[in-house]
Design a protein around this nucleic acid. Structure first.
Lengths: 338, 338
DNA sequence: GGGGTGCATTGAAACGCTTCAGGAAGAAGC
DNA sequence: GCTTCTTCCTGAAGCGTTTCAATGCACCCC
């Protein structure tokens, strides 16, 4: 019942415990016959190496800690999966923590990761954890920011250029003939939201004949988008925008609902809609949603790569990788305004 | 740079290492002054307890292992979150592994969990891992099956009655006046799919005036549903079903797309549609989707509860909790057939 | 046959923590 | 003044692994 240990295996195979360890870790230096005997003993006893002892000896673990902002958002879960795959390729595992935008949960996971002596930490921070992260790094644990750049550039980061993304989205709307554009999203305190809006402003700023209205929502969820859509549908046709840029796909999907079902507004004929993130469901909404795609998997993989390099060589200068988003045109923004 | 350990703390606070440990684990038995001195030393050195050493001594970890079938399915991620919350309440953390229906990944996570000496394992198995799981349990690690019952009942399990779920869905369609019903889903080798179909058959079986057509898809994804929807829309009106029961919400969403966009078929007037799982996006599709809701969070929480009880007392008899699904009526199945 | 060379194996130390038997010192009881 | 309690603290053992210097041992070369 009690788990077997190396000592038991050694006794059964009539070798020293050192040899058992060698069979497990450096099989090439032990003679085939001995190795065979040891393997049989392991098999017979159902021996499973105790990772805690191994880590204690090694002084560090083979895990990477990852703190996510929102576990319910397909964008983050996909990124996490990519990080896991990348880590697995290098022989590491990933411990995923979901902060859910709560500072105390974030802090709890950082504690956990420190106690586990993880090899490094990937994080999309919610609170102002920079000082904490600095201390962690001073203890020899590298930290890479994901989907957010470091204010003082002292941490490596992997992010996407949301300003450009916003500009691309709105430029696309303008190019397809739209002139009265609305931005729907919030809260503005979320950096991604303000960046995307800023991009929209830049795109519009170059054109005197284009207007940009900003409609603020409380959160980036479907229900908020639906409300905004209803409100817009209720307006007289002349006061409606002819295109809407939503701060993310959830809001955009809500908008479609509100506009189509409540207002019988034709999409994209009367109003074009574009979202952001290109989540799998974008393509599955009734009017297939145009969106701005982020290289989600690439973000996760790159972050792991950088992290592991820094773990190998702590003297490395911090790096900042910024990916460019990509326009995905689907039905919701096709064709010109009526 | 090198992380401080209890010895360093003890030296700085001029106490023995035993006292440092006591301050951390049983502060009530040490005098307030000494405790204070130790706390300051900890603070000053930035001491963080080494979890590996702690676990090694304890002989087991404070983590629970969870192996998920599909990390991209909102149903599973929500269940995982619930399990995490439940475990956290009891002072445990959860290590989540996503098998993605791959046997080798599943096996890899089981290895990892064994080496970590997790307190218990929650799993929705993909392969035939019963023998393996039995060995694990013989080593003192309890196992609870999630969303799947154990063939031989030797493991505790928490699941949902998919047969009843299927019956409820189809009964609802019949009750609202539908007579030509189609079931869309696959592959049939997935137990959930065959159970739901079986439930549909039971519901229909009681009525001579109701027909049930089975349309098989290759997988439970949106694109498959969309194809099926198109095919149905292309049929002459007289040969179309007047209601469709989709094996899950992703397929149902695809069906809506195919029927509405390709065929201009009115939902629910011409064809009613109902899905399964009640994922968050069901409510967000253009025609709000009726669905069968599973007590997702409850499943995760119950599984953790049972697991921890078995970890405390390994002699407990296996238990089998089966929850009942719930009908959620939204727009896609409202009103009578035309 | 003595000394060198390699290979396979051994045994013990070390990783950082918790626990526990025991000791020091003071208070209380007779 | 002696024992008996309490309270607080110490010191060492031990968890299961890895690692490394040391030891055999066989073989080869001169």
């Amino acid at each position: 019942m009690a788990a077997a240990n190396v000592k038991d295996v050694a006794a059964l195979a009539r070798v020293s415990i050192g040899t058992v360890s060698n069979v497990l870790n450096r099989p090439e230096i032990v003679s085939p016959e001995t190795a065979e005997r040891v393997m049989q003993a392991i098999e017979k006893l159902g021996f499973v190496r105790n990772d805690a002892a191994r880590q204690l000896k090694a002084g560090r673990s083979n895990a990477i800690g990852l703190v996510l902002l929102d576990g319910a958002n397909p964008f983050f879960t996909e990124m996490a999966t990519a990080a896991e795959d990348g880590a697995a390729r290098a022989g590491f595992s990933v411990i995923v923590g979901n902060s859910n935008e709560k500072k105390d949960r974030e802090s709890g996971y950082l504690n956990l990761f420190e106690e586990q002596r993880v090899r490094g930490i990937l994080i999309s921070p919610v609170g102002n954890v920079a000082p904490r992260l600095r201390r962690i790094r001073d203890h020899g644990i590298p930290v890479v920011l994901v989907d957010r750049t470091s204010p003082d550039s002292s941490f490596s980061s992997v992010s996407v250029d949301d300003v450009t993304g916003g500009a691309v989205a709105v430029t696309h709307l303008i190019d397809s003939g739209r002139r009265r554009i609305a931005f729907v999203g919030g809260a503005m305190s979320i950096r991604q939201v303000s960046d995307r809006l800023q991009g929209a402003r830049i795109a519009v700023g170059m054109r005197a004949d284009v207007s940009l209205e900003v409609i603020t929502t409380a959160a980036l969820v479907v229900s908020e988008g639906r409300e905004a859509g209803r409100a817009i549908a209720r307006r007289p046709a002349s006061e409606r925008p002819d295109a809407i840029f939503a701060a993310n796909d959830l809001v955009a999907i809500g908008l479609l609902q509100g506009l189509l079902m409540e207002g019988r507004i034709a999409i994209p004929d009367q109003i074009a809609v574009i979202g952001y993130d290109d989540i799998p469901f974008a393509d599955a909404s009734v009017v297939a949603l145009s969106s701005i795609r982020q290289p989600t998997r690439l973000i996760g993989e790159t972050a792991v790569e950088i992290l592991l390099e820094e773990a190998d060589d702590p003297t490395l200068e911090p790096r900042h990788v910024v990916y460019q988003p990509e326009l995905v045109i689907r039905d919701s923004s096709g064709g010109p305004a009526a």
